[in-house]
Design a protein around this nucleic acid. Structure first.
Lengths: 249, 249
DNA sequence: CGCACAGTTGACGCACATCAACCTGGGTGG
DNA sequence: CCACCCAGGTTGATGTGCGTCAACTGTGCG
């Protein structure tokens, strides 16, 4: 099971997948989903865990008048839902932003947190990472303009996709519609289109046929005020001054 | 110690404070800080835990050109930093938004997560709550206009302050400057001022002398698209269909 | 062929930014 | 005790980023 996931994703975040994979005794079932399908409803309580294997998905929130914000874009390797493994999440809706392949991991015997201390560790790291990404998104929504936000999103996706081996020469598949990009950045589809045009005119990127090429990553990151530090798990803190719980986590 | 904190805060979130308080053998040291002072720097690694006892504080992020966004407003009872208890946080900067009293809890013997399973539970609940608040803030930054965002912030603060007994008759002390409100909502101070005027003109609120009065809470919440559900810890999920870990968390 | 959908572009309007002036109240020092 | 100061609040004039509306294009698919 573990090798199955890792070969599929070429992931480098072995610790997380190790923790999860070890919990399952049955094989992972794969499902193909078209674009624009809700994977997870806030009122459903699925037993299985779901992992995104291919494509793009997104968690989103709606205002009562229909305004939508995609609070988090999911890339291959990301957890869609942990199901009964750890039903800790606030209720959220997840939809596909592109044709997706998702893996369903049915859990025979739900673990508890004492028998699987590694699970707690992984869970907290996972939440930390989401929090860091969410904070950067807040910065885009609140203080970056549309071009900067777009550039930042591209830098972030490149970084996240690179860790699962889906980037070659600063180029990767980007099949998210401009409408969904707009709901991620908190602007309108029309303005995304114009901001894209502006970005293209700088020569920093090419986006065509569902493929994004970053021609000058350093310049793009500068424009976006992008610092990849928030995506990397911090190096193990030195033991001096650390408490036992730090090492455990 | 526990009674000390609870009497100071009149908190109802007893579980969290119980978990924390039990860890300490020394007394809590109090410190008074003026407005606009950084409590926590991202490079510091304090041993002590800090809790906000009075006033307002805020976590913030800066862009390299000086643009600032307050990602989270802290109210009395909120954890500023857990220090060595659980040094799990992404590195953040925290500043006072008003004159504050903070409590310092020095931890003699750092716990580990196996000896204190309740700590892990509390930690995850704490992160969940922060995440839910952050998500609502994203919605404000991305999809609410300035008046709606302001109204939503007021509703949220009322709710959070009410749980620590600092609200009477939908009225509470609000000593955050318009400049800091602006950095919370992602707009300019001038525009906060005008949005405040617009809100006042609706008759829904009165804000004067550092005191906010909500005259028609229901109408304000409707205007803000506010739903308090995200702030309340979800009721214990029914046992049917739940796994062991759900009950543990 | 024609329909549906995503992308593109133009004209125009509005929410919010910018710049600048002025007001106000509390604190401070002479 | 008054004069001053200064941070924060308030307001006006004007500029701009983004929204809105609408038309058109291209492209894949039944």
């Amino acid at each position: 099971m573990n090798t199955l996931i890792r070969s599929e994703l070429l992931t480098t975040d072995s610790q997380w997948l190790d923790s999860i994979s070890a919990l399952f005794t049955t094989n992972m079932r794969k499902r193909e989903l078209p674009k624009r399908v809700d994977v997870l409803h806030p009122d459903s309580t699925p037993q299985s865990a779901f992992i995104l294997l291919k494509g793009y998905a997104g968690r989103y929130r709606l205002l009562s008048d229909g305004r939508r914000l995609i609070t988090m874009i999911l890339v291959p390797g990301d957890i869609i839902s942990l199901g009964s493994i750890a039903n800790y999440q606030v209720k959220r809706t997840v939809t596909t932003l592109a044709p997706c392949r998702i893996g369903e991991l049915s859990c025979d015997t739900p673990p508890d947190n004492t028998s699987w201390p590694g699970l707690t560790t992984a869970l907290i790291r996972h939440m930390q990472r989401d929090e860091a990404i969410a904070e950067e998104r807040m910065l885009s929504l609140g203080r970056r303009n549309a071009v900067e936000s777009l550039a930042h999103l591209f830098c972030e996706l490149r970084e996240r996709l690179a860790t699962v081996g889906l980037v070659t020469d600063d180029s990767f598949e980007l099949t998210i519609s401009q409408e969904d990009l707009a709901d991620s950045l908190g602007v309108t589809p029309v303005h995304v289109n114009r901001s894209l045009r502006a970005l293209r005119k700088t020569g920093l990127i090419t986006l065509a046929g569902g493929n994004l090429i970053i021609h000058d990553r350093q310049a793009l990151e500068l424009l976006a005020h992008f610092d990849s530090a928030y995506l990397q798990f911090e190096p193990e803190r030195s033991t001096e001054g650390s408490s036992a719980i730090v090492r455990n986590y």
